[in-house]
Amino acid sequence: MISLRPTDLAREHGISTQAVRNYERHGFIPAAERTRSGYRIYTEVHAAALRAYLSLVPAYGYATAGQIMNALHRDALDDALTLVDRGHGQLLRDRDTLAAVRTAVTHLTAGSAPAPAPARDTGTRTVGELAHQLGVTPATLRNWEDAGILTPDRDPATGHRVFRADDVRDAELAHLLRRGGQPLGHIATVIGQIRTAGGTDALAASLETWQRTLTDRGLAMLHAATRLHAYLAHLDTGSRTHGS
């Protein structure tokens, strides 16, 4: 088996030898054997482990990448694969959210007319009218307000909530995302982005960046799968060698 120095592993990835030692200490690569003088002896197994770990980082993040490698090193393959599956599930949810936001933005920027308001209405909605328009309860709208999704004004004379055009837009988008299973906290973030961007036009432009991010993460997952499979082959070979 070929012996490698810490510098050999570090040079391949443009990292420091201290980083390699840190990854070993945290269990992201297997523990190295030592020479009599205390120097670490790495092998192709360590090199494959480092490639796998560093490829997992852009795909799943530092924390999950470390958890995956730790699981492998305690012979908990199913735990490692569960973490991988969760990452793919999160990516799919993010893609679904992006699609829902795209649909909502397209709907809103297309100028789709809201349901006709009562004759006395001048373009605003009461909480009951907006709830009826969306097919939800007034309590639901109040919950959305508590979550920061809606920020209606109050009628100075009555103190009742007054939902204007922007509020109706936000409520329609929230309703669509909620039907898609998105949590209130995430919906509040999306709505906040629309307000910060100054409207749906600016948000539509930012969706392209979001799309590229998801594409990059998906490609990173494919690359990580290749590296992880190669490392598992090393582990399997080592297991058979020790078992023979």
Score class of each variant (00 low, 15 high):
212 R>Q: 14
144 W>A: 13
117 A>R: 06
127 V>A: 06
151 T>Q: 14
50 L>T: 07
66 G>E: 05
166 D>C: 11
178 R>P: 13
16 S>Y: 02
185 G>R: 05
67 Q>L: 13
43 T>A: 04
95 R>V: 07
41 I>D: 05
32 A>K: 00
47 A>F: 06
65 A>L: 07
59 A>V: 12
182 Q>C: 09
15 I>H: 06
114 P>E: 04
233 A>F: 02
101 V>F: 02
178 R>T: 15
121 D>S: 13
107 H>R: 11
87 G>Q: 04
145 E>V: 10
171 A>L: 10
161 R>W: 09
115 A>M: 08
202 A>Y: 09
54 L>A: 09
200 T>M: 15
97 T>G: 01
173 L>M: 15
183 P>H: 02
23 Y>K: 01
217 R>A: 15
146 D>H: 02
62 Y>R: 15
29 I>F: 03
38 G>R: 04
220 A>I: 12
195 R>G: 14
144 W>L: 13
36 R>T: 07
70 N>R: 03
66 G>N: 05
150 L>R: 05
37 S>W: 07
33 E>D: 15
161 R>E: 02
25 R>Y: 02
55 S>D: 09
49 A>I: 02
25 R>Q: 08
70 N>I: 04
17 T>R: 07
72 L>Y: 01
161 R>K: 05
107 H>Y: 10
32 A>S: 14
79 D>K: 00
238 G>W: 01
205 A>R: 08
63 A>M: 14
183 P>L: 03
243 G>C: 10
213 T>C: 04
8 D>N: 06
2 I>R: 07
